[in-house]
Design a protein around this nucleic acid. Structure first.
Lengths: 261, 261
DNA sequence: TAACGTCATTGACTGCCGTCAACCGATCCG
DNA sequence: CGGATCGGTTGACGGCAGTCAATGACGTTA
């Protein structure tokens, strides 16, 4: 049971820095202005609740910093984590009822909220925003389906490998958590083992063993429980089962960039 | 490896029986007419391919009969099933590129295809259709996330229970596969053990044991490998972990109806 | 009718993973 | 400085599930 602490609201209009977000970059200036005017930035400390489960919300939002987790509580008190949200991910349901899961801060995080009414109104007036929103939801579907594929994999080490690769891919779209210095790929994993284990459908002990086993086999190196280095991208990919590496894969480009630096 | 046989196309315009589909019932008559005019019904035999993976498609569609499976092929040749589609489910990607998985017929099935161009055009002209499509995709997200929750469960019997309940819920929306005669809930499972095991992230042998174990414990009865009877809805729900049964749950209503007949 | 293929089921065995427990390092606080 | 707490890791052990193999039921075909 995680208690809900009050969240701090702050800042002037467009404290969200919407104009800097790649998510909305493609929109016309007028739409961006209108969005920025209705954006409410809110910060959360780790384990605070953004949206409780099964409660109708009159906001939708997007993540600007940190990681959120989608969490389900089972009848026997067990919790499970069915998704994570990182910067640029949108959440909440326009036109629709309450969510079947809670959204909580997995790290200290910052989000940007929009009231549903004005947002849906703007949606109806801007075909660009509308297309962006539809594409965004389609990406959500893809991400969820990809994760179904990962969890359907029976071996924990394969799931762990898939997670690291997925994280690299997400971080690759932005800066900060992925470092390519000295020809290495270093990836920052901002989740506790406990949360990560729930997300991977296993337990912290087993996950720890899986990571250290990957390290012993030379696929990765762990510089701290939260800082991983990818030492064998191909091997890790093969082990994950998901055949990610087409020649156009952005992660592969990154790896090449890393080995050339 | 499943070979692609050519599919049979048939029938006059609106052979799909669009007007009878609950999916589109809420639309204005003019939109329904236009949709019906562009609908192409196609039938598939079991294991035929509807959309191959990673190939751009210029159609979207919806299922009118049978079950489709979303299938991923791993690098080592293992296949996994990451979703199923039943009547009224839509598939395909408007505004977007190719899918990362194949869509295949898990049973003999019939679908209704729309060319993407005209469909997207109609989407822009009909706010009702647009809202329907968005809500439909949101439901896809929910279904996928729910399945993530099921797969994150570590025990196969719990996953099997979740599957049966999910299937009841889906069948409840329509007629045919769910029978309530004689105060019983009988549910038809149209998938082979092999496919079902892949969908549940396990193996046919293990799944068979799980089902028979559920039967021994009195939760279900198996009248054939494809015909299940739910004997203890509450127990099955508790075992599945998902706390489905709110008082407004349509499945619970059905159970009450069954026990009163 | 017999041979064959498909598919579900069962058995035996092995191995991975969940569970319980202890340990350890880091951080915070008195 | 010493104790407490949190979170990650490691060890030991038992059980559940994956694997291989064989059997049986059913429908199809020759």
């Amino acid at each position: 049971m995680i208690e809900t602490k009050p969240a701090r609201q702050d800042g002037p209009r467009d404290g969200c820095g919407l104009s800097a977000m790649p998510l909305f970059r493609a929109l016309p200036a007028t739409v961006r202005t209108e969005l920025a005017a209705m954006a409410k930035p809110i910060r959360y400390a780790r384990d605070e609740t953004v949206f409780p489960a099964h409660v109708p919300q009159d906001h939708v939002g997007c993540v600007t910093r940190g990681v959120l987790r989608l969490e389900k509580l089972l009848s026997d008190g067990q919790q499970q984590i069915i998704g994570i949200l990182v910067a640029s991910d949108m959440f909440g349901r326009m036109f629709d009822g309450p969510l079947g899961y809670a959204i909580e801060a997995a790290t200290d995080a910052e989000v940007c909220l929009f009231r549903r009414g004005p947002f849906e109104d703007l949606l109806g007036r801007s075909p660009e925003l509308e297309k962006l929103v539809i594409l965004n939801i389609l990406n959500e579907v893809d991400a969820a389906l990809e994760w179904v594929g990962v969890l359907a994999n029976r071996k924990v080490s394969a799931r762990a490998a898939s997670f690291l690769l997925m994280l690299c891919r997400r971080w690759a779209a932005q800066t900060g958590a992925l470092s390519l210095d000295h020809g290495r790929i270093e990836v920052n994993v901002p989740l506790r083992r406990h949360d990560l284990a729930l997300f991977l459908g296993t337990r912290p002990e087993t996950l720890s063993r899986a990571f250290h086993s990957l390290a012993e086999d030379g696929f990765i190196a762990m510089h701290s429980p939260y800082l991983f280095e990818i030492r064998d991208l191909d091997g890790l990919t093969r082990l994950s089962g998901q055949d990610y590496l087409s020649d156009t894969d952005p992660l592969l480009q990154l790896a090449r960039a890393a080995s050339n630096s």
